[in-house]
Simulated scan of single mutants.
Amino acid sequence: MDINPNSSGKSPLTSTSSQVPEPAARRLIDRLNSQGNNEQVSISYKAQKLDLIRAEFFSSTIRSDQIPALTQRLFEDGLINSEQLQSLGGFSSTPVSAVSESVHFLNNFILNESVDGDTEGAKSLLSALEVIEQMNAPATAGRREQEKQALEFVGNYTEMLKETEAPADIIKGFEKVTEVLVTLNKVRSNEAKTGALASYASVEEAHKALYEDKPKQGNNSA
């Protein structure tokens, strides 16, 4: 599937390790840049994710207090679904955050072979995923450019999905990713004005105000 529309407790995503390894998305982007076309992006990506999980959680005997972080990681990495997450006790008291939901969707989309054979589309999607995973990082000029490109790509692709009448769950997933990227862009703009650094928590709070509270306000005013 060609996904390139231009072609013819702990905060989510926070590593439990003191040394944060290079994300799987960035590793695969670098590999695609160096090796060119890869017909089996999903296989390479899954192998890298499993290697990172093995190194972080299973280098020694896993402790009981690591289980919540492991289950959340498996969900965000697209390796288990929301029902399996709930059965393992993940997010038992609070709903899945918009950020975690978007990361899960993008990872699952890649792992389901949706970008196999489409190297440029895969790189664009992996770059968007990296933007969300790294939103806690300082906003350098290069990072801001990557964030803007990710928003443009995902927004264009979402519109293309609607035009081609893609499955509703896929459209809904990309709409959620677009919302998160739009929210991140707004938080970054505010960061430049006030100096308040963007974080998973600030993006989640802003997303709630932008997208989740509006229907409630509308109902109250009716």
Rank of each mutant, 00 (worst) to 15 (best):
K123V: 08
D118F: 01
S18Y: 13
T164Q: 14
P68W: 07
E175F: 11
L197W: 12
Q66F: 06
S64M: 13
S202Q: 14
V187E: 01
L111M: 07
D2S: 14
L106D: 06
S59A: 09
L50V: 13
G195P: 07
Q72C: 11
Y200H: 09
A69Y: 09
A168T: 14
I62F: 05
G121N: 04
E163R: 13
L52Y: 06
L111K: 01
T61D: 14
L52I: 12
G173C: 02
G195L: 05
S92M: 13
L210W: 04
S82Y: 07
L126Y: 00
A24W: 00
E191C: 03
K176A: 03
T178K: 14
S64I: 14
A209G: 10
V41H: 06
S60L: 08
H207P: 02
E39H: 11
S102P: 02
G78M: 05
T194E: 06
E76D: 08
I171A: 05
S7P: 06
S100P: 02
S8A: 15
V41F: 07
K176G: 02
I3N: 04
Q134L: 11
S7L: 12
N107V: 04
I53E: 01
K176F: 06
E175W: 05
S127M: 13
P167E: 03
Q35S: 14
V99H: 00
T119N: 15
A98I: 01
S8I: 12
E152W: 01
V180N: 04
L52A: 10
Q84Y: 04
A222G: 12
S127K: 09
M1G: 14
D116P: 02
S87G: 08
P68L: 12
N185P: 07
V154W: 00
V177I: 13
N220A: 15
F109K: 01
R188E: 10
E147W: 04
L129Q: 05
N108S: 15
L50T: 13
I62R: 03
P68H: 11
I29G: 02
K172Y: 09
G173D: 03
L74T: 03
Y157I: 03
P21E: 11
I110E: 02
D118W: 05
S34G: 08
L125Q: 01
T178R: 10
V41Y: 07
A25H: 03
F58A: 09
E39A: 15
F105Q: 03
N81L: 05
V154E: 00
I3W: 03
N37V: 06
A209P: 01
Q35K: 12
Q86M: 09
N107D: 09
E205T: 14
Q84E: 11
Y45N: 00
S102E: 10
E113P: 00
S18I: 10
S114T: 12
G89P: 03
A150T: 00
S11D: 15
Q19P: 07
E83K: 14
G9L: 14
I80D: 04
L181G: 01
M1F: 09
N220I: 15
E113R: 08
N33R: 14
F58G: 12
N33P: 05
I171V: 15
N219S: 12
G78S: 00
M160P: 02
S7A: 13
E179A: 06
S17I: 11
N136V: 10
G36F: 07
A25F: 02
T140C: 12
F57A: 03
S15K: 08
L28P: 00
A201S: 15
A25G: 03
F58R: 07
E22I: 10
Q72V: 11
G142V: 15
